[in-house]
Computed example of a mutant assay.
Amino acid sequence: MIRRLTKEDHEPVFLFLQQDPSFNLFIIGDIESFGYDADFQAVWGQFDGNGSLKAVLLRYYDSYILYAPGDFDADGFARLIRETAGSSLSIQLSGKEEVARQFEGRLPLGTKRTLYFCECRTDEYARQENGAFAVKKAGWADVDRILDLRGRIAEFETRPSSRDMLVKGMETNSARTYYIEQDGKMVAAASTTAENSLSAMIVGVCTDPEHRGKGYASAIVAKLVCDLFAEGKMPCLFYDNPAAGRIYHRLGFRDIGLWAMYR
């Protein structure tokens, strides 16, 4: 049985998600920040005959994430996603690769991108690079500067909801952005998203093409790692660029699996 979850389900839902806290970082963070009743978010669960959870699906704006540690009703969830996605011609879906790929052929998915998923269990190495440059924390006035920087980088896709998501993250303290500027211009940045009581995902690591090779991105990520550890949160991230992977490994990140995104 698949049904929509409510705040009354919160305790069993979190016990279920904490089986795999790093891979469930997005679901945990979004539930902690926005609950079960937000108009841009909804959560569903599949239960077995004994009333135990088998899978959880989160919709956040126009994106879906599903977690299941074993077999789950892929056909049932695919029907649910089609019903709630409205007129979308291409479904945006992500999750552990072995889970997400089960929707191939069941949904009109976008282009698949497979990334390495990492977690960092020590700040020992980040501390060695922290402080190399003046890293600042972005505030409300910097939101458009962040989007402008991302817009100057070919690898970044800015969606219509990007600004709203940045603002909501700041409002709920579930996201932050650190940056480096030169001559008053933001030239490198990195953000967190889905920050929760256990962990945080580092995203949006970027450097203006004219300022690459100076160590800016490494310094910002190192600052994020140190600050997150000081708050008792484990940093996570994903990557598909081997050069970026070497930087993250040097800072103490270790691969724990694969993450699939369909966009």
Results as ranks from 00 to 15, higher is better:
residue 112 K to S: 13
residue 112 K to R: 10
residue 113 R to N: 05
residue 114 T to A: 14
residue 114 T to L: 13
residue 115 L to G: 09
residue 115 L to C: 07
residue 115 L to A: 09
residue 118 C to I: 00
residue 118 C to M: 15
residue 118 C to Y: 11
residue 119 E to N: 15
residue 120 C to Q: 12
residue 120 C to K: 06
residue 120 C to A: 12
residue 121 R to L: 08
residue 121 R to F: 05
residue 124 E to G: 03
residue 124 E to Q: 08
residue 126 A to G: 08
residue 127 R to M: 03
residue 127 R to W: 04
residue 130 N to Q: 10
residue 132 A to F: 01
residue 132 A to M: 08
residue 133 F to S: 04
residue 133 F to D: 13
residue 134 A to S: 02
residue 135 V to F: 06
residue 136 K to D: 08
residue 137 K to C: 05
residue 137 K to D: 10
residue 138 A to S: 13
residue 138 A to W: 01
residue 138 A to R: 08
residue 139 G to N: 11
residue 140 W to E: 13
residue 140 W to A: 07
residue 142 D to R: 02
residue 143 V to Q: 01
residue 144 D to M: 06
residue 145 R to I: 06
residue 145 R to G: 09
residue 146 I to Y: 12
residue 146 I to G: 02
residue 148 D to F: 10
residue 148 D to P: 03
residue 148 D to W: 15
residue 150 R to K: 13
residue 151 G to M: 02
residue 151 G to Y: 06
residue 152 R to L: 08
residue 153 I to N: 10
residue 153 I to C: 06
residue 153 I to P: 06
residue 154 A to F: 07
residue 155 E to S: 15
residue 156 F to E: 13
residue 156 F to Y: 14
residue 157 E to K: 14
residue 157 E to V: 13
residue 157 E to S: 11
residue 157 E to L: 10
residue 158 T to R: 11
residue 160 P to S: 10
residue 160 P to L: 07
residue 162 S to T: 09
residue 162 S to C: 01
residue 163 R to Q: 05
residue 163 R to Y: 04
residue 166 L to N: 01
residue 167 V to I: 12
residue 167 V to S: 00
residue 169 G to Y: 03
residue 170 M to H: 09
residue 170 M to C: 01
residue 170 M to N: 05
residue 170 M to F: 13
residue 171 E to A: 06
residue 173 N to S: 12
residue 174 S to C: 10
residue 174 S to H: 10
residue 175 A to N: 04
residue 176 R to S: 05
residue 179 Y to N: 11
residue 180 I to E: 00
residue 181 E to V: 03
residue 181 E to M: 12
residue 181 E to R: 09
residue 182 Q to Y: 14
residue 184 G to P: 12
residue 184 G to W: 04
residue 186 M to Q: 09
residue 188 A to S: 15
residue 188 A to F: 13
residue 188 A to W: 12
residue 189 A to S: 15
residue 190 A to I: 01
residue 194 A to M: 14
residue 194 A to W: 13
residue 194 A to Q: 09
residue 195 E to A: 11
residue 197 S to F: 09
residue 198 L to E: 11
